[in-house]
Design a protein around this nucleic acid. Structure first.
Lengths: 221, 221
DNA sequence: TATACTTATGGTAAATTTGACAACAAGTTT
DNA sequence: AAACTTGTTGTCAAATTTACCATAAGTATA
């Protein structure tokens, strides 16, 4: 009766800039245009599994943070016929990722969040929804770490928050608030190759991370 | 290829108790069992419109607060075959509502939130997701008013929050916080027919309501 | 070697918010 | 009139936030 697809908003963070992974379609009516990576759901496949598969096919990565946004179902959202799509968003660690264009896409490329081109169908709307979700989610759940390498400095973490929220934060106050949560563990290791005082590296505490992921917190910034 | 349905978690608030509207199926494999009201999406019908239609057919009400939860798509969530459902939740003013059983349901009934029976398919899961969404949403957006009559007392509003969040609040502090938002307008009118000092009635300010609906707030209780 | 420069980290004081509770007000019931 | 019930206002210490400043620990430059 209906076609159902998956579309993923994949966020990455590099050099203080938030990026989204877009693909250039190689086949079909939208050939040559940019859009979100996605695909049709298989028979007997759970929708979360379909999103995981789509993600793996594109990035080669498993075990990625992935969460459903919602379903998008305007009857004319795509010209060819009725397709309802279920939006997902994912957060990936830039360093682990290696670009792979798939069969149906000719190119895959990171775009800065403030220079997103016009995308096919309603993909700009899905992307915007994903960004808003990320903005609110990062204030109530410790998901931001999925965008960072395993070891990071407090300022890297702060810049991530600044970039996602689109506003400047106070170093000193950010440090106090984030440390109060006991989510971070100081490492006996410092930043390398910087031409100024090296900052301490941190990682997050798995146990507390799990607890806070369920309970949530309230990060007023 | 796939069937897509809508299922609605409809909340109502009466005498300080949060209720959910359930229906008893009159036809099909689930005949005689209780579940969430819902139905299939029509061809060329937007999914939001399908939810509105479902709601109107059951309650006769238009212009109701309605918001999508997410899509539920386990391959075996219903025994008959693959159906992906899109969950919605709605908040309605009890006083405006008049029960109507439809064609496919033999009965429609309000259930207290703490006495929900075993429902068909994954409807208990959808309901739980809806309640959680309501709990977090009510702390960041002024949606609770949709559950109350036009004029209400501060204590009625507080009891609504208490019931939804499942915890007791302090009268004095609640009053201070809610009034600080400037969302409420004092009316020159008091509660009627109570056997104690009558409380002042309030309504909410449309303009500020709209503004806060977009901007959101942070209601720490 | 001394000085300037950059970022990291720790601290502080004023302002604001919170939490817990007391006190009083305005009615109804006994 | 006294007791009772709920509404409304006020208080005050504790906790938190905000906007800073000061110092530490390095690198680069004169």
């Amino acid at each position: 009766m209906n076609e159902i697809s998956i579309d993923c908003v994949i966020f990455g963070f590099k050099n203080g800039i938030l990026n989204v992974l877009l693909v250039k379609h190689a086949i079909g009516d939208s050939k040559g245009e940019w859009g979100l990576p996605g695909g049709l759901i298989l028979k007997k496949e759970a929708i979360d599994a379909a999103a995981q598969r789509t993600l793996k096919e594109l990035t080669g990565l498993d075990n990625i943070f992935l969460e459903q946004l919602k379903a998008f179902g305007e009857p004319n959202r795509i010209p060819l016929g009725r397709v309802i799509t279920i939006g997902y968003y994912a957060l990936i660690n830039f360093d682990d990722y290696d670009v792979k264009a798939g069969i149906t896409v000719s190119e895959a490329k990171w775009y800065k969040i403030d220079s997103i081109p016009k995308l096919i169908y309603d993909h700009n709307e899905i992307l915007d929804f994903g960004l808003k979700k990320l903005q609110t989610r990062i204030l109530s759940t410790p998901i931001g770490f999925n965008l960072l390498p395993e070891k990071f400095t407090l300022l890297q973490l702060m810049h991530l928050y600044e970039e996602i929220l689109g506003k400047e934060l106070d170093k000193s106050n950010f440090r106090r608030k984030i440390l109060k949560m006991k989510l971070l563990v100081v490492l006996d290791e410092k930043q390398q190759d910087v031409s100024h005082r090296a900052a301490n590296l941190y990682k997050f505490d798995d146990a507390i991370y799990k607890k806070l992921s369920q309970k949530g917190f309230n990060f007023e910034i």
